[in-house]
C-alpha cells in the first residue's frame, strides 16, 4: 500500500492571532514494507505529520493519497483507512479502558465491523505477536507492569492488521531491555506480515540500528530523507537542529580529529570495531 503526501501544509488555528504553521509543504512517498525512522526534536512537526497519515488531522492545503485515492475526499472511508494505517500514540497504555486485556485488544477489530470470531482470532494473534502470555489475557490491563501495558496497547492496534504501522516514540519510559525487546518485536512483526513501519524516535542510535530510511523533520519541513548512512553524514546540520548523530558516529569523528585515518561513515558499534581494528592494522 503506497502513501503519497503531496504539498501538504497544516496550520493550527488558521485565521486567528494564534495561527502557527506545523507542517510546511511536505512531500513524501512511502513504499510497501519500508522501515522508516522519523526524527526531529519536540515541536518539529513529526507527531503532526503522522496524524495526517490516517486522517485524524486534516491538511490545510495539499493532500494525502493512499493507493491513489485522496483521503480528504468526501465519502472516503476513514474508518477503513484507520484499520490499514495503524497509529500507536505516545504512551499508548493511557488509552486502555476495558475490564480485561483480551477485550481491550478486541476494541479495534470490533470497530472495523468484523465478526466476533474474526475479532477474537485477531486479538489472540496480536497478543501473541507482542509476546503477552495467555495467563494475562483475562487480567485487568491496569494490573500489568508498565512494559506489559505498553505491549497490550500496541497489540490493540496490531489486531486491526494494519498495512502501515506508525509508532510515536514507543520506547519512551522503557528501560534498555524493554526498549530492545520492543524494537526487536517490531522487526519480527514486519518480517512476518510485510507491513511498513514508521518509527518516530528521539534516539539516533535506535533509528540507525533499525530503520532503512530516515526522514528528518525540522521546523515543519523535511530536512533530510535518505538512508541512515547518508543522513548521518550531515553531522553539523543535525547538531544545529538540536539532534545529532549516534554516539558511536560522534566517537569516530573525535578519532578522526585526533589524527586517526578512520572513516566517519559508521553508525553501529560493530562496524566501528571492524574499522578501528583495520586502521590499527590488526
Amino acid at each position: 500500500m503506497s502513501i503519497i503526501v503531496n504539498h501538504l501544509t497544516y496550520r493550527y488555528n488558521p485565521g486567528t492571532a494564534m495561527e502557527s504553521t506545523a507542517l510546511d509543504d511536505i512531500n513524501l512517498k512511502i513504499e510497501d514494507g519500508e522501515f522508516i525512522g522519523l526524527i526531529g526534536h519536540t515541536g518539529s512537526g513529526k507527531s503532526t505529520l503522522v496524524q495526517q497519515l490516517n486522517g485524524i488531522l486534516k491538511p490545510t492545503s495539499g493532500g494525502v493519497y493512499v493507493d491513489g485515492a485522496d483521503i480528504g475526499d468526501d465519502g472516503y472511508d476513514l474508518k477503513k483507512l484507520r484499520g490499514e494505517v495503524g497509529l500507536v500514540f505516545q504512551y499508548p497504555e493511557h488509552q486502555l479502558f476495558e475490564t480485561d486485556v483480551f477485550k481491550d485488544v478486541c476494541f479495534g477489530p470490533k470497530n472495523l465491523g468484523l465478526t466476533q470470531k474474526e475479532t477474537e482470532l485477531r486479538a489472540y494473534e496480536a497478543l501473541k505477536q507482542v509476546g503477552i502470555a495467555d495467563e494475562y489475557f483475562y487480567q485487568s490491563p491496569f494490573d500489568l507492569s508498565g512494559g506489559q501495558k505498553r505491549r497490550v496497547a500496541i497489540a490493540g492496534v496490531l489486531a486491526m492488521k494494519p498495512k502501515v504501522l506508525i509508532l510515536d516514540e514507543p520506547t519512551a519510559g522503557l528501560d534498555p531491555k524493554g526498549r530492545d525487546e520492543l524494537l526487536d518485536k517490531l522487526t519480527s512483526i514486519r518480517q512476518d506480515t510485510g507491513c511498513t513501519i514508521i518509527l518516530v524516535s528521539h534516539s539516533m542510535e535506535d533509528v540507525a540500528r533499525y530503520a532503512d530510511r530516515i526522514v528528518v523533520m525540522h521546523k515543519g519541513r523535511i530536512a533530510f530523507d535518505d538512508t541512515p548512512m547518508e543522513v548521518f553524514k550531515h553531522r553539523d546540520e543535525l547538531k544545529e537542529m538540536g539532534l545529532g548523530v549516534p554516539g558511536i558516529t560522534e566517537t569516530m569523528y573525535k578519532l578522526k580529529d585526533a589524527g586517526f585515518p578512520v572513516s566517519t561513515d559508521i553508525i553501529t558499534v560493530d562496524t566501528a570495531v571492524t574499522e578501528i581494528m583495520k586502521v590499527l592494522g590488526r
Binding site: 534498555p176 549516534p246 566517537t251 558499534v269 590488526r282
Partner: peptide, 20 residues
C-alpha cells in the same frame, strides 16, 4: 541486569575482546 552502556564504552569493550 538488563542495563546498557554508552556506545563508546561498548566499543572499547569489544575492541578489548578482539585482543586490543
Amino acid at each position: 541486569l538488563s542495563l546498557d552502556v554508552p556506545q563508546v564504552t561498548m566499543c572499547a569493550h569489544k575492541l578489548r575482546e578482539a585482543g586490543l
